[in-house]
Amino acid sequence: MIFRGTKRPDGAAAVPKADVKPKAGLSRHLKSEWQLYALLVIPMAFLILFKYVPMFGLVGAFENYKVARGFFGSEWVGLKEFGNLLKHRDFLPALRNTLLLNFLDLLFGFPMPIILALLLNEIRSKWFKRVTQTLLYLPHFLSWVIIGALAYQLFGLNSGIVNNLLESAGLSRIPFLQENTRWLATYVAVGVWQSMGWGIIVYLAAISGINPELYEAATVDGAGRFRQALCVTLPGIRSTIVVLLILNLGRIMGGSFERIYAMQNVATTEYTMTIPVLIYRWGILGTQFSRAIALGLFQSVVGLILVLITDRVAKRLGEGGML
C-alpha cells in the first residue's frame, strides 16, 4: 500500500515526500502495486501493436511500394509521391472538401451536445431525463450504411417519404440529396443528429462535478435557472469544452469515410471527394498504395499541427490545454 497521509497509522509523523529516495520509492511502489501495472500492460500492448507498429507502414509513402516486394524490397523514391500528390487534379478539391465538411461539422455539431447537456441538466424528472438521454444516444450505435439507406428512404427526390409528404401537402419536391448545396446541408444535419446524443455524456459527467454550493449561492443572489446555466454550469464545464474542441480540431483533416460513402451519389459530387475517399480510391480500388499512404501521412501531419496550434492558443487564453 502507498502511504499517502500526513500521519502514519501508528501516529508517527509522516516522512516528507521529498525525503523519499525516488528509486527506492518507485521500486517499492512497483513491488506493491505490480498487479495494476500488469493490467496496464494490456492497453499498452494494444496501443503499441495497433497504433505505433503500423506507423512503420508509412515508409511506403517514400517507396514505389509493391505488395510482393514488401517494405524492404520496394524501390525507394523519396518524396516523389508527395510531388505527384500535390500536382494531382483531385488533391485540392479533396483538401477543400475535407476542411469544409469538417468545419461545418464543428460549427454545427460541436455546440449541440453542450446545448443538449445544459437542457438535460435542467430536467428534474429522472425517468424523462433517462428516456430522453437514451433516445439521443441511439443514433450513435447505428452504422453509417444504415443511416445512409435511411437518408435516401426519407429524403430521396422521387420516392423519399418526406418528399411524398411534401407533394401530398401540395408543395414541390426538394432534392435534399440530389443537388449539391442541399446535399451538403443534409449531410451536416444528419451528422449532427447522429452524434449529438453521444457527445452529451462527457458534458453531463463534467456538470455532475460542479460544486452544488455554487448553485445555492447563485440562487441566493437571485439567479434564475437560465442565469445559473449560463453563469455557473457553462463556466464549470469550460475546461472540458476546450479539451474536446482541441480533440475535434485534430480531426478536422480526417473525417468519416463511411459517412460520405453511405450518403454520396454520382449526381452530387461537388463535396463528396474528400481525403479519406481519395485514400480509399487510390489504395483499395486502384492499388496505388504509395500515393494513398503519402496522402494519409499528409493528412495526419496537418492534423497534428492543428492540434499543437490549438493547444498553444488554449494555453495563451488561460486554459490548461492538453499537452
Binding site: 505490480w34 498487479q35 500488469a38 493490467l39 500492460v41 494490456i42 500492448a45 494494444f46 501493436l49
Partner: peptide, 12 residues
C-alpha cells in the same frame, strides 16, 4: 490479474 494480463498480451 497477472494471468489475464499475460494471456491478453500474448493474444495481441
Amino acid at each position: 490479474a497477472a494471468a489475464m494480463a499475460a494471456l491478453m498480451t500474448l493474444g495481441l
